[in-house]
Design a protein around this nucleic acid. Structure first.
Lengths: 205, 205
DNA sequence: CGAATGTCAAACCAATTGATCAGATCAAAT
DNA sequence: ATTTGATCTGATCAATTGGTTTGACATTCG
């Protein structure tokens, strides 16, 4: 049984390596532009071996998308520290930005899929929309309670998404503009501070 | 001479058609994922005919990137109505959003190139950086004059870019969340209002 | 032991890729 | 009318694509 567990674990580890390689390749070239050879190279295995562990490129891509959705759900479902607007938004923005800077390729794959019309993402979006709708209700509640000024609760969420995700999508551009090396880390705390302030002050009644 | 002009014009018109088709294809699939066959189909010509007018896929892509940079320069160099922060930012945000909603594919091609490390964009970025630096100086001036609260002038620009571009990149997602048809127009005025308010109020001293 | 299962690589396959070529077509210039 | 040059097409190219097959090797289990 110990051996069996080891085997299953080795399989799972290799699968994680493959998934990571796939995310990197898909982030850089999209679904059509990604090649299984490229994924195999990044994973450090032969193309044949890769195809032994996956059923098809499209299938791997779909699995990556599911994985991403799962990560985002986790990120969103972590109970926020507080329920007042300021505490909640601070926490939310900080977490989103941390994720963007830590796993930029994940955001890139997602945006790449959206840019081509999100044909393989539509299945997940129904759940995502109801979640966004609940959040919109909460924001509307803040507005009604006079805690923040009147805003469109949906657009506010889109705006926060864009502010946080941009630092993943355009990290290369940001680094260049700031005169940083291509692989230099971005200043998470500073960015978080600036974005948070912009949003919080922008919502003052 | 008249005839010559006509010929040159026909050539140019066809070239514009090809460029538009290329932008659509590149926006959806990126450089590697785009196929010359797909571009030819969108342009309504045969693949052979396409290759008669272009020298290579990479070359066409580079030309598209140059074209995009030109469009953005024009957008930026139009003299703003006013020089005070509020007037300038209102104008700038409105123009950027108008462009994003009108030509979303242009923004998509640009982001797609950035996401893969922007190897064919670096040549343009030096000029772009000095322009951004000048804008940063102006913003710093506003801060020094107490017209807006202290902010990082560079990050403020990144944040405005992301707020405006997101409605091009993620138009599909936004439409879905708002329950709109895939080809329904987004409410430019409403979005402009919301984004402008968020930024202007977020900058109050 | 031996059968069965899991792991992997070399060779290979059909399809698509970007791109070329020789030649047909056509309008303009001589 | 003939020449010239640009435009356009069908056939075709070599290379790369995603994916399979065959078979060798190893590991596990009876």
């Amino acid at each position: 049984m110990n051996v069996r567990a080891d085997l299953a674990q080795r399989r799972e580890e290799l699968h994680a390596v493959i998934r990571a390689a796939a995310i990197a390749e898909f982030a850089e070239h999209g679904l059509r532009g990604a090649s299984t050879q490229g994924i195999a190279d990044r994973a450090g295995i032969s193309k044949t071996k890769l195809h032994y562990y996956i059923t098809s490129k499209e299938d791997l891509y779909q699995e990556v998308l599911d994985h991403i959705i799962g990560l985002w759900d986790d990120l969103f479902h972590e109970t926020p520290d507080s329920d007042d607007p300021e505490g909640f938004l601070r926490d939310y923005i900080a977490r989103k930005l941390l994720f963007s800077l830590e796993y930029p390729d994940v955001s890139r794959v997602f945006t790449s899929e959206v840019m081509r019309g999100a044909p393989m993402l539509r299945a997940h979006w129904d759940a995502s929309r109801t979640a966004t709708g609940r959040a919109a209700d909460r924001i509307a509640g803040w507005v009604a309670a006079g805690l923040i000024r009147p805003v469109d609760p949906w657009l506010l969420q889109f705006n926060i998404w864009s502010l946080t995700q941009a630092y993943a999508l355009h990290a290369t551009e940001v680094r260049f503009m700031l005169g940083l090396d291509d692989d230099a880390p971005l200043d998470l705390d500073h960015i978080t501070q600036e974005v948070t302030q912009l949003v919080l002050r922008g919502l003052r009644p």
